[in-house]
């Protein structure tokens, strides 16, 4: 499979999950595991353009696929607007859900450049965060969406009394 633009050829046991292949075999530990039932979304990666949960994906089934992980989102060291948004708008605390959250947000904005708050909230429904209450994650995605449209991001909450 191709991961972040690099082709890898490996033999794996059929039961190896894609997330373990990425983490153990390729050393790409940015993709995390937070549950067993494909609920938490910490393992979200983009396979052939679609966000998926790599803990519920056999590595063998991804043979030949194009996989993008959080490590491949920044281009030549420049942060992706979604990454920038998470930093600028305090969209993370412990950071564990963040890679999956970023991948879901990247996938969203590739399909919908101007999502409303409700659309953002539903788009990241499959990514659980226990720290932020999602408030600032929504702000981070709004920031990124504006940036990607070439617009000025909305002012941060702390400059605008609610």
């Amino acid at each position: 499979m191709t991961v972040n633009g690099t082709r890898y050829d490996r033999d794996v046991e059929p039961r190896t999950l894609l997330v373990h292949f990425l983490r153990e075999e390729l050393g790409l530990t940015g993709t995390h595991v937070g549950c067993d039932t494909s609920y938490c979304g910490a393992c979200t990666v983009i396979v052939d353009g679609r966000s998926v949960k790599s803990c519920t994906y056999l590595a063998v089934a991804a043979d030949g696929a194009d996989v993008r992980t959080v490590e491949g989102v920044a281009v030549d060291g420049t942060l992706h607007p979604v990454q920038e948004g998470f930093w600028e708008r305090h969209g993370l605390q412990c950071g564990f859900c963040t890679p999956g959250m970023i991948m879901s947000s990247v996938a969203l904005l590739e399909q919908n450049p101007a999502p409303g708050e409700g659309e953002i909230r539903h788009a990241i429904e499959g990514n659980l965060c226990r720290c932020t209450g999602y408030h600032n994650i929504v702000r981070a995605v709004e920031y990124a969406a504006a940036k990607m449209r070439g617009e000025e991001p909305p002012a941060p909450d702390w400059e605008v009394p609610s």
Binding site: D36, T56, Y57
Partner: peptide, 26 residues
Amino acid sequence: VMAGGMSLLPLMKMRLLSPATIVDIG
């Protein structure tokens, strides 16, 4: 049979279901 695997794989991960063979129709 496995198509997307979203129902099957969680059951297999929790070892509630352990097929001898997965026929991936993907």
